[in-house]
Amino acid sequence: MTELTLGRLLRSSTTGYVFGCKIPEADAPCFGDFVKAPAQRGQTEVIGLVYDLAISDDGFVRPMATADLPEEVILDQRNNRNVPIEVSVLAVGYKNGAGFIHGLPPQPPLTLDTIRTCTDDEVRAFTERSDYLRLIAESAEAPAEELLAVAVQRAAAVRPPAERERYLRKAGRELAKLLSRDLPRLERVLSRIQPNR
Protein backbone atom coordinates (compact mmCIF):
# COMPACT_ATOMS: atom_id res chain seq x y z
CA MET A 1 0.00 0.00 0.00
CA THR A 2 1.26 3.48 -0.85
CA GLU A 3 0.88 6.34 1.61
CA LEU A 4 -2.59 7.90 1.45
CA THR A 5 -3.86 10.97 3.30
CA LEU A 6 -6.98 9.94 5.19
CA GLY A 7 -8.13 12.96 7.18
CA ARG A 8 -7.40 15.22 10.11
CA LEU A 9 -7.31 14.60 13.81
CA LEU A 10 -10.37 15.46 15.90
CA ARG A 11 -9.25 14.38 19.38
CA SER A 12 -6.45 12.32 20.90
CA SER A 13 -4.77 10.92 23.97
CA THR A 14 -1.62 8.89 24.43
CA THR A 15 -3.61 5.66 24.04
CA GLY A 16 -5.22 6.58 20.74
CA TYR A 17 -6.85 9.17 18.54
CA VAL A 18 -9.95 9.89 16.47
CA PHE A 19 -9.83 11.50 13.06
CA GLY A 20 -12.41 12.73 10.58
CA CYS A 21 -12.41 11.38 7.08
CA LYS A 22 -14.61 12.13 4.05
CA ILE A 23 -12.86 10.29 1.27
CA PRO A 24 -14.88 7.96 -1.01
CA GLU A 25 -15.74 4.50 0.27
CA ALA A 26 -13.14 2.71 -1.88
CA ASP A 27 -10.31 4.69 -0.26
CA ALA A 28 -11.75 4.93 3.25
CA PRO A 29 -9.73 3.18 5.95
CA CYS A 30 -10.75 -0.31 7.05
CA PHE A 31 -10.84 -2.02 10.43
CA GLY A 32 -7.31 -3.16 11.30
CA ASP A 33 -5.44 -0.77 8.95
CA PHE A 34 -2.10 0.60 10.13
CA VAL A 35 -2.11 4.42 10.16
CA LYS A 36 0.23 7.14 11.42
CA ALA A 37 -0.06 10.66 12.80
CA PRO A 38 2.70 13.21 13.42
CA ALA A 39 3.44 14.23 17.03
CA GLN A 40 6.00 16.25 18.98
CA ARG A 41 6.34 18.76 16.16
CA GLY A 42 7.16 16.06 13.65
CA GLN A 43 9.83 14.35 15.77
CA THR A 44 7.70 11.24 16.15
CA GLU A 45 4.95 9.48 14.25
CA VAL A 46 2.32 7.68 16.29
CA ILE A 47 1.51 4.29 14.73
CA GLY A 48 -2.01 3.05 15.31
CA LEU A 49 -4.58 0.48 14.28
CA VAL A 50 -8.05 1.47 13.08
CA TYR A 51 -10.55 -0.21 15.39
CA ASP A 52 -13.81 1.67 14.78
CA LEU A 53 -15.45 3.65 11.98
CA ALA A 54 -18.53 5.65 12.94
CA ILE A 55 -20.81 7.70 10.70
CA SER A 56 -22.90 10.20 12.68
CA ASP A 57 -26.29 11.47 11.60
CA ASP A 58 -27.52 15.05 11.85
CA GLY A 59 -30.89 16.75 11.93
CA PHE A 60 -30.86 17.19 8.16
CA VAL A 61 -30.26 13.53 7.29
CA ARG A 62 -32.54 11.96 9.89
CA PRO A 63 -35.92 12.81 8.24
CA MET A 64 -34.61 11.55 4.89
CA ALA A 65 -33.74 8.09 6.18
CA THR A 66 -37.16 6.67 5.35
CA ALA A 67 -37.80 8.70 2.18
CA ASP A 68 -37.58 7.40 -1.37
CA LEU A 69 -34.59 9.52 -2.39
CA PRO A 70 -33.22 10.42 -5.82
CA GLU A 71 -29.68 9.21 -6.43
CA GLU A 72 -28.48 12.84 -6.60
CA VAL A 73 -29.50 13.44 -2.96
CA ILE A 74 -27.57 10.40 -1.77
CA LEU A 75 -24.48 11.50 -3.71
CA ASP A 76 -24.84 15.04 -2.36
CA GLN A 77 -25.02 13.81 1.22
CA ARG A 78 -22.05 11.46 0.77
CA ASN A 79 -19.75 13.57 -1.39
CA ASN A 80 -20.52 17.21 -0.72
CA ARG A 81 -21.67 17.61 2.86
CA ASN A 82 -19.07 18.12 5.49
CA VAL A 83 -20.17 15.20 7.65
CA PRO A 84 -17.07 13.12 8.37
CA ILE A 85 -16.64 9.45 9.03
CA GLU A 86 -15.12 9.33 12.53
CA VAL A 87 -12.28 6.83 12.66
CA SER A 88 -10.95 5.61 16.03
CA VAL A 89 -7.35 4.47 16.26
CA LEU A 90 -5.56 2.50 18.98
CA ALA A 91 -1.96 3.66 19.49
CA VAL A 92 0.39 0.66 19.37
CA GLY A 93 3.76 2.35 18.92
CA TYR A 94 5.66 5.22 17.44
CA LYS A 95 8.55 5.99 15.20
CA ASN A 96 11.37 8.33 16.13
CA GLY A 97 14.94 8.85 14.95
CA ALA A 98 15.91 5.50 16.47
CA GLY A 99 13.30 3.52 14.58
CA PHE A 100 10.03 1.88 15.59
CA ILE A 101 9.16 1.51 19.26
CA HIS A 102 6.31 -0.67 20.52
CA GLY A 103 4.65 1.21 23.35
CA LEU A 104 2.62 4.32 24.06
CA PRO A 105 3.94 7.53 22.47
CA PRO A 106 5.42 10.30 24.66
CA GLN A 107 2.78 12.78 23.42
CA PRO A 108 -0.38 12.42 21.38
CA PRO A 109 -0.85 14.11 17.99
CA LEU A 110 -2.59 17.50 17.97
CA THR A 111 -5.95 18.68 16.63
CA LEU A 112 -6.13 18.80 12.82
CA ASP A 113 -2.87 16.89 12.35
CA THR A 114 -2.93 14.91 9.10
CA ILE A 115 -3.47 11.15 9.37
CA ARG A 116 -1.92 8.91 6.70
CA THR A 117 -1.84 5.21 5.98
CA CYS A 118 1.39 3.38 6.73
CA THR A 119 3.17 2.09 3.66
CA ASP A 120 3.74 -1.66 3.24
CA ASP A 121 7.42 -1.13 4.08
CA GLU A 122 6.50 0.67 7.30
CA VAL A 123 4.02 -2.05 8.33
CA ARG A 124 6.64 -4.72 7.59
CA ALA A 125 9.29 -2.91 9.61
CA PHE A 126 6.93 -2.12 12.51
CA THR A 127 5.72 -5.72 12.80
CA GLU A 128 9.20 -7.34 12.69
CA ARG A 129 8.76 -7.65 16.47
CA SER A 130 5.44 -8.60 18.04
CA ASP A 131 5.45 -6.48 21.23
CA TYR A 132 2.66 -4.31 19.81
CA LEU A 133 0.26 -7.24 20.23
CA ARG A 134 0.35 -6.71 24.00
CA LEU A 135 -1.12 -3.21 23.67
CA ILE A 136 -3.95 -4.57 21.55
CA ALA A 137 -4.65 -7.47 23.91
CA GLU A 138 -4.79 -5.11 26.91
CA SER A 139 -6.95 -2.46 25.22
CA ALA A 140 -10.19 -1.64 27.00
CA GLU A 141 -11.64 0.38 24.07
CA ALA A 142 -10.88 -1.75 21.04
CA PRO A 143 -12.44 -5.16 20.26
CA ALA A 144 -9.15 -6.87 21.07
CA GLU A 145 -9.69 -10.36 19.69
CA GLU A 146 -10.88 -9.14 16.30
CA LEU A 147 -8.16 -6.50 16.13
CA LEU A 148 -5.39 -8.95 17.07
CA ALA A 149 -6.44 -11.35 14.32
CA VAL A 150 -6.83 -8.67 11.63
CA ALA A 151 -3.56 -6.89 12.55
CA VAL A 152 -1.57 -10.12 12.33
CA GLN A 153 -3.19 -10.96 8.99
CA ARG A 154 -2.35 -7.47 7.66
CA ALA A 155 1.23 -7.82 8.83
CA ALA A 156 1.51 -11.18 7.08
CA ALA A 157 -0.07 -9.87 3.89
CA VAL A 158 2.66 -7.22 3.35
CA ARG A 159 5.36 -9.92 3.38
CA PRO A 160 6.42 -12.01 0.40
CA PRO A 161 4.21 -15.14 0.05
CA ALA A 162 7.06 -17.43 1.05
CA GLU A 163 7.46 -15.63 4.39
CA ARG A 164 3.82 -15.36 5.39
CA GLU A 165 3.38 -18.78 6.99
CA ARG A 166 6.54 -18.38 9.01
CA TYR A 167 5.33 -14.94 10.18
CA LEU A 168 1.90 -16.23 11.18
CA ARG A 169 3.43 -19.13 13.18
CA LYS A 170 5.75 -16.68 14.97
CA ALA A 171 2.84 -14.36 15.76
CA GLY A 172 0.82 -17.35 17.00
CA ARG A 173 3.60 -18.22 19.46
CA GLU A 174 3.62 -14.61 20.76
CA LEU A 175 -0.15 -14.66 21.17
CA ALA A 176 0.10 -17.96 23.06
CA LYS A 177 2.43 -16.28 25.57
CA LEU A 178 0.17 -13.22 25.86
CA LEU A 179 -3.09 -15.09 26.26
CA SER A 180 -1.88 -18.22 28.06
CA ARG A 181 -4.16 -17.48 31.02
CA ASP A 182 -7.26 -17.19 28.85
CA LEU A 183 -7.27 -20.27 26.67
CA PRO A 184 -10.75 -19.85 25.13
CA ARG A 185 -9.74 -16.36 24.00
CA LEU A 186 -6.42 -17.64 22.63
CA GLU A 187 -8.22 -20.35 20.70
CA ARG A 188 -10.59 -17.81 19.10
CA VAL A 189 -7.72 -15.58 17.96
CA LEU A 190 -5.52 -18.44 16.71
CA SER A 191 -8.40 -19.90 14.75
CA ARG A 192 -8.60 -16.58 12.88
CA ILE A 193 -4.93 -16.52 11.88
CA GLN A 194 -4.29 -20.14 10.99
CA PRO A 195 -1.89 -20.18 8.01
CA ASN A 196 -4.08 -22.44 5.89
CA ARG A 197 -7.38 -20.82 6.82
Binding site: P70, E72, L75, D76, R78
Partner: peptide, 10 residues
Amino acid sequence: VFGHGSGEAP
Protein backbone atom coordinates in the same frame (compact mmCIF):
# COMPACT_ATOMS: atom_id res chain seq x y z
CA VAL B 1 -26.85 22.86 -9.04
CA PHE B 2 -29.02 19.77 -8.59
CA GLY B 3 -29.15 17.78 -11.83
CA HIS B 4 -32.37 15.86 -11.26
CA GLY B 5 -32.16 12.64 -13.28
CA SER B 6 -28.44 13.09 -13.98
CA GLY B 7 -27.28 10.43 -11.52
CA GLU B 8 -24.46 12.78 -10.53
CA ALA B 9 -23.63 14.50 -7.26
CA PRO B 10 -24.90 18.10 -7.24
